[in-house]
C-alpha cells in the first residue's frame, strides 16, 4: 500500500480534472463548429470586427506567463527560491495584463453596442448574433478560468515563500502550473477561431 502523499497520484488527479475542463470547453467548441458551418460568412464578418492587435497581444502575454510558470518549476527543482518567486510574480502580472486587455476590449464592444441582446445585434444578421454570443460566452468563461488560475498561482507563491514548496515537494506548484497551462492551451484555440477568421 502506497502512501497518499504520492506525487504521481496527485498529478494524475490533476490531469483527470484537466480532462473535464477540456470537455467543458469542448461542449462550446461543438457549438462553434456547428454554427461556423452554418454561418461561415457571418463568422468572417464578425471576426473582422474583433481587434487582431489585442488578440495577438493577449496571446503573447499568456505564452510568456506560461513560460514563466514552467521556468518557476525548474527553478524550484534547482532550489533557487528567489528566481521561482520572481517568475511566479511575473506570470501573475501577465495574468493581470490579460484581464485588463480583456476589459478594454469588452467595454469597447459594449460602447459600440455589441453585447448580448443589444439592439444592434438583434437587427443584424442572425449569424452575427451567434458569433458574438459565442464570443462573450467563451471568452467570459475563459476569463473566469484565468481568475481561478491566478488564485492558484497566488496560493503557490505563498507556499513557496513559506518554504512549504521545496525541491522535494512541489506537486502543488506543478498542479497549479498545469491548470495555468491549460488556460493558455484553450486560449491558443480561441485566438484563431475568433480573431483570425478574416
Amino acid at each position: 500500500m502506497q502512501s497518499s502523499s504520492d506525487h504521481e497520484g496527485s498529478k494524475l488527479g490533476m490531469w483527470l480534472f484537466l480532462y473535464t475542463e477540456i470537455m467543458l470547453f469542448g461542449g462550446l467548441f461543438v457549438l462553434y463548429a456547428v454554427y461556423y458551418h452554418k454561418f461561415t460568412d457571418d463568422f468572417i464578418a464578425g471576426g473582422q470586427q474583433l481587434d487582431t492587435f489585442f488578440g495577438t497581444l493577449n496571446t503573447v502575454i499568456l505564452l510568456i506567463s506560461s513560460f514563466a510558470v514552467a521556468a518557476a518549476i525548474t527553478a524550484i527543482q534547482n532550489n533557487s527560491k528567489k528566481i521561482a518567486i520572481i517568475l511566479l510574480g511575473s506570470s501573475l502580472l501577465c495574468g493581470f495584463l490579460f484581464l485588463i486587455n480583456k476589459y478594454i476590449e469588452w467595454s469597447h464592444k459594449f460602447e459600440v453596442g455589441i453585447y448580448p441582446n443589444s439592439e444592434k445585434l438583434l437587427e443584424s444578421d442572425p449569424g452575427l448574433n451567434i458569433f458574438f454570443g459565442l464570443y462573450y460566452v467563451i471568452t467570459g468563461l475563459h476569463g473566469v478560468h484565468i481568475i481561478i488560475g491566478m488564485a492558484l498561482l497566488v496560493w503557490s507563491l505563498v507556499r513557496v515563500k513559506s518554504n512549504h514548496i521545496t525541491d522535494q515537494n512541489y506537486v502543488l506548484l506543478e498542479n497549479a502550473g498545469l491548470y495555468w497551462h491549460l488556460v493558455d492551451l484553450i486560449w491558443i484555440f480561441i485566438f484563431p477561431l475568433f480573431y483570425l477568421i478574416l
Partner: peptide
C-alpha cells in the same frame, strides 16, 4: 442575458441543445 444561442429567431438551433 438572452443571448439567443438556441433561439431560431436569432440564428440559434434548438436541436443543438438536445444534442448537447
Amino acid at each position: 442575458f438572452n443571448i439567443g444561442l438556441f433561439d431560431p429567431d436569432r440564428g440559434g438551433d434548438p436541436i443543438l441543445y438536445q444534442h448537447l
